[in-house]
Amino acid sequence: MAVTTARDAKAAPARRSFWSGIGQGRHVLGLLFMLPAAAFLLFFLTYPLGLGVWLGFTDTRIGRTGVFIGIENYQSLFEDSLFWLVVFNTLLYTIAASILKFALGLWLALLLNQHLPFKAFFRAVVLLPWVVPTVLSAIAFWWIFDSQYSIISWALIRMGLIDAPINFLGDVTNARASVIAANVWRGIPFVAISLLAGLQTIPPSLHEAATLDGATNWQRFRFITLPMLSPIIAVVMTFSVLFTFTDFQLIYVLTRGGPLNSTHLMATLSFQRAIPGGSLGEGAAIAVAMIPFLLAAILFSYFGLQRRKWQQGGGD
């Protein structure tokens, strides 16, 4: 990108007549080429985004156009203890799952970056959980977390670690841990493979030089790998946080928010109030309430990126 911009700037004075001849056409053609994508995104993305914000200020129900009611939806949410429980659940789910995904994903990336036999095979296999539809793998987890016939309970009983089957999805703490585990299972591959790509761009000479200077493995990881990897970590974790925070499918399959609403997330509550419940306005308000959190996550990673541009050899 920088190269072509520089080229444009340099070429412009020399070939003014050439560019001015087609320059006009370039802009018109550019807009023409943008048209299909822009039309799609404006109509099906920007407009609904605005419509969603508007709906949050109305009392629209299914089958009835609502009227503007100001911040009444938000006021009632503010006083709704369930809403605050759901915000807490969402934050707990996002933070716990993201930390685990990051730690385990980084570990897996470091393992895959080693010299291994069948490396391509391992790399291919590791990505599988991410490829299959979440709903379908969640159904498999539902069966794995069955209260009576869970294979995990069976294995633990056989090993003599527990006496009775674990009630994975029926108990508040267990249910939270189970949905987080299933989310982590699905999220590790994305983090690992992306970080692996980052690891492969670190020049091996840095590690060799550090080893010659007597650095330990931990020091090499802490002072070479981690700083060199941080730009890509910021991007990967932003995506991960974003998609964990707005997760819907896994919860909808495994618990539908239960037991005692302990696994209800903002997205599932928004769906429940809007579609089966019929209060589109209230559902939209919950969805809009997610936006500040998402913006915070994006800004956090954006500034994380800015500060570290030098690490990839760009800028100062």
Binding site: A37, L41, F44, L45, T46, Y47, P48, L49, L51, G52, L55, T60, L242, F243, T246, D247, F248, A267, S270, F271, A274, I275, L280, G283, A284, A287, V288, M290, I291, L294, I298
Partner: peptide, 21 residues
């Protein structure tokens, strides 16, 4: 830049208005 930001908009905040549309 707009395209990149559009990439970050999750379906869970769009499905209600989209359903109405």
């Amino acid at each position: 830049l707009g395209i990149f930001l559009a990439y970050l908009v999750p379906p869970s905040i769009l499905f209600i208005p989209l359903a109405i549309m």
